[in-house]
Write a protein that binds this DNA or RNA. Structure first.
Lengths: 248, 248
DNA sequence: TGTAATCCTTGACGCAGATCAATTCACGGG
DNA sequence: CCCGTGAATTGATCTGCGTCAAGGATTACA
């Protein structure tokens, strides 16, 4: 296992892969320098719980690479994923000192962290940071509301199609520029994590993935690699308007 | 019908009932004066749709009095409420020019509005406004995530108990200071709106409300007035930890 | 090469909540 | 006072998804 890779962190903010999408996106070079002085990197292995709900949070930070989940758990063990953290996403909340959710690494992860207090001070003095954080929070709120429609009103098949569409769309944005032709990508989540995301059981997830494959909506290579021959068909299955309706 | 009451708006920001909780909460008196110059009041009757999803939004604003809902609708008519707007809540998103959701007045409503462009300009120059909006947006995000757990993992009975608990708690904060003794309040929503909130049908809502009444968890006077004799019992029924677990 | 651990798939069955349908209740207007 | 209208209740039935259970695929390590 190549653990060294997981801790490969950018030396310099200017080379940082999330430079133009994270909280620091709007910072000028002098602001960036000040941030640079208080930042530090941390890396985590796949499967590790970075933060436990209720724990004292003495830092905030951005995901540089890798994927993590935000989940909520009930006393009896039922769990619901409430956020999916991708590179550039922000973790922690200025002004709160204990974590509200569990944060779990799905893959190996590198984070760019700031101790909370210095970051809060810096935020008060640097409107560019607060502005960007507001923008990102509003985007997350929109995503959460989209997700509420999925959880509250969609059928199991529509839920699966919606999730695959979200992953496909994100992948298309990050990698290939256009969305023409068949999309090919890996599902970053296990069936169980998909179930936690969608408010289903892993058996139902498995059945519906199989059903979409049988019906030609997706093709599978192994258990994770997906090909979507016709994205509009997938959107129809998701119950979404085939063109509009996407806030991302 | 007393329509004049609906348009009773405060003359002066200092007398405004939401002065210390809305976007303007942190503003100094000079900032308030500038806001004062660009604000205007609008009132709407119960049942009216204030904003249609997809419409051009040329204003943003705060709910001064009354209740409204944010809902999302699928092509086939399925709807999911994604937000409940109470006095002091903010409507609209700086930086976006079309509405993402339908906004519907549940009761008669008064709003304090700002044309979008001047408000955005003002926000760029007034960190106090942006800071407060960030804080409010983070709170809404937390509420949305709480709600995702309700939608994804709770049973119909737990959903109803959760909703009643939320309304009871909010009512207790606004009106009676303490939470000792039985709580009495009105449900602001119809059974159908409750169903839209919780991802259920109105029949199921009705049945579960009746069941909670039969089991002595709540008492009903007419269809709307609720008494909660034991709040912890209600929280147990909601599947929540009986003390912690509340982010509000 | 075996075997243990994960992760996934598939089947059989039951139940919570949706759907369809019929009343009942509350209230405002003629 | 009656009647009309929209909201809520309640019942009967149906079904999608959860639950329980058995096995298959892939990888890691002895």
């Amino acid at each position: 296992m190549l653990k060294e890779l997981a801790s490969a962190a950018p030396r310099d903010c200017e080379d940082c892969p999330i430079r133009h999408r994270a909280v620091c996106a709007r910072c000028e070079s002098d602001e960036l320098e000040r941030l640079d002085q208080i930042k530090y990197y941390r890396s985590f292995e796949a499967g590790q719980t970075l933060i436990w709900s209720g724990d004292k949070m003495d830092f905030v930070g951005s995901v540089v690479s890798g994927i993590a989940t935000l989940t909520q758990t009930m006393e009896d063990g039922r769990t619901q994923m409430v956020g999916l953290l991708l590179p550039s996403d922000f973790v922690g909340r200025p002004g709160r000192d204990s974590a509200a959710y569990d944060v779990v690494a799905v893959s190996d992860i590198v984070m760019c962290c700031f101790r909370k207090k210095p970051f809060e001070d810096m935020m008060a003095r640097t409107p560019h940071i607060a502005q960007r954080l507001l923008e990102m929070t509003l985007d997350e709120l929109d995503a959460a509301r989209e997700w509420m429609l999925v959880l509250g009103r969609k059928t199991a098949r529509e839920k699966i199609a919606s999730l695959i569409a979200i992953i496909a769309r994100r992948d298309a944005v990050l990698n290939t520029a256009g969305m023409q032709g068949p999309l090919v990508f890996d599902l970053p989540l296990t069936r169980e994590a998909m179930a936690d995301y969608l408010g289903l059981t892993l058996e139902t997830v498995s059945r519906q993935v199989s059903a979409l494959r049988r019906d030609g909506v997706i093709m599978l290579e192994g258990k994770r690699r997906v090909t979507v021959p016709d994205f509009n068909r997938l959107l129809e299955e998701a119950g979404d308007d085939s063109d509009g309706g996407l806030l991302v």
